[in-house]
């Protein structure tokens, strides 16, 4: 593969406690292209992504060996100023995380913490980035309103604008559209296609059609190993390895064994998570609950609360225009 390298990974290994989640990763990620990481759940996609901006440092008991070069600098070098590194990369997570402040302050957060005080410059910047994220027209009237009041799709675009405001070189996305309705998801996808001329983009996704639409390059990760890496059209047309083929043919996509289903359409917060909790109480540890909701706010709130209670949210995805499904595994009994 011939391209200008932006991120170069050499012999990267990551352990959580004694459990190794990434084995000897060696890849180069191209400049100003979209690289998509695919692979079954739990194979280490998020870990790989977060090792680029050293967010995995925050996990308890994590150990990293190897090197990651960004712009030719090894980011695991002791001398690296990690806040500068992180400023270089905007991160979009699966569920949009708005900061507890106004829309304006969310976008202005990064420039401000890096020392920009000039009000006029900030105003211009906020408007510009909101425009880039395709949100300006929807929020220009209520910039000082709380960001948490936006719809989820809008929140994710706000997160994009916030990341762009840090003036990054790289955009990282960890399944950034999986919690969004199809229209919002499409808007985000469109942003990525527009932005790839200016930024290097690395995305994790479970959605193969999305991967096909967006990817210039594809990484297929399986149990912490890179099975295949190459140009998107080549991998999608004729994968070299049978594992990749199986995955692309949907053999891998695990069907969660559902023990109980709960239809919560028409209920609002906090009613829906109270009902979810009650339903979980009736399950045994390890059993899986699937809930269907159509209340946007709940798509963020319910998984958050449920994880706070110590359970594991296996999947959140939109299943049609109005509904989402959330799959939860019961992990403990009530309080932890």
């Amino acid at each position: 593969m011939k391209f200008k390298t932006h991120i170069s990974i050499k012999d990267l290994n990551v352990w959580y406690e004694k459990h190794q989640v990434l084995n000897n990763i060696n890849i180069d990620i191209p400049d100003k292209k979209i690289t998509v990481i695919i692979g079954p759940s739990g194979c280490g996609k998020t870990t790989l992504l977060k090792s680029f901006n050293r967010l995995i440092d925050l996990q308890d008991g994590v150990m990293v060996s190897g090197q990651v070069f960004v712009d030719g600098e090894n980011i695991y070098d002791e001398k690296i100023e990690v806040t500068h590194l992180r400023k270089k990369m905007g991160l979009l997570s699966q569920r949009p995380q708005v900061l507890p402040m106004s829309i304006y302050d969310n976008v202005a957060y990064s420039p401000r913490i890096h020392g920009l005080k000039n009000k006029k410059k900030l105003d211009e910047l906020v408007e510009h980035e909101l425009n880039e994220a395709g949100l300006w027209n929807e929020v220009k009237e209520r910039l000082s309103g709380p960001a948490s009041k936006l719809s989820i799709g809008q929140q994710q675009r706000l997160c994009l604008a916030r990341g762009l405001a840090a003036d990054p070189e790289i955009i990282l996305g960890d399944e950034p559209t999986s919690a969004l309705d199809p229209i919002s998801a499409e808007k985000i996808e469109q942003r990525f296609l527009d932005l790839k001329n200016k930024y290097t983009i690395v995305l994790v996704t479970h959605n193969l059609r999305q991967a096909k639409r967006l990817a210039d390059y594809v990484i297929f990760l399986y149990l912490g190993n890179i099975i295949e890496y190459g140009k998107a059209d080549e991998i999608f047309k004729n994968p070299k390895y049978s594992k990749t083929k199986d995955y692309l043919n949907g053999k891998f996509i695990e069907e969660h064994k559902i023990d109980k289903e709960l239809n919560l359409k028409g209920t609002v917060c906090p009613d829906n998570f109270v009902k979810t909790k009650v339903a979980l109480e009736e399950l045994e540890v390890g059993q899986v609950l699937r809930i269907i909701i159509d209340y946007e706010q709940a798509v963020i709130e319910v998984p958050k609360t449920i994880e706070y209670e110590g359970h594991k949210v296996l999947e959140v995805k939109s299943i049609n225009r109005t509904d989402w499904e959330i799959i939860i595994e019961k992990r403990n009994d009530g309080e932890i």
Binding site: L55, L58, T83, R86, G90, Q97, Y109, S110, I113, H114
Partner: peptide, 12 residues
Amino acid sequence: EMRETSLALGAT
């Protein structure tokens, strides 16, 4: 996640 978000934006 709230803390992670802020740190990811380069905050100390």
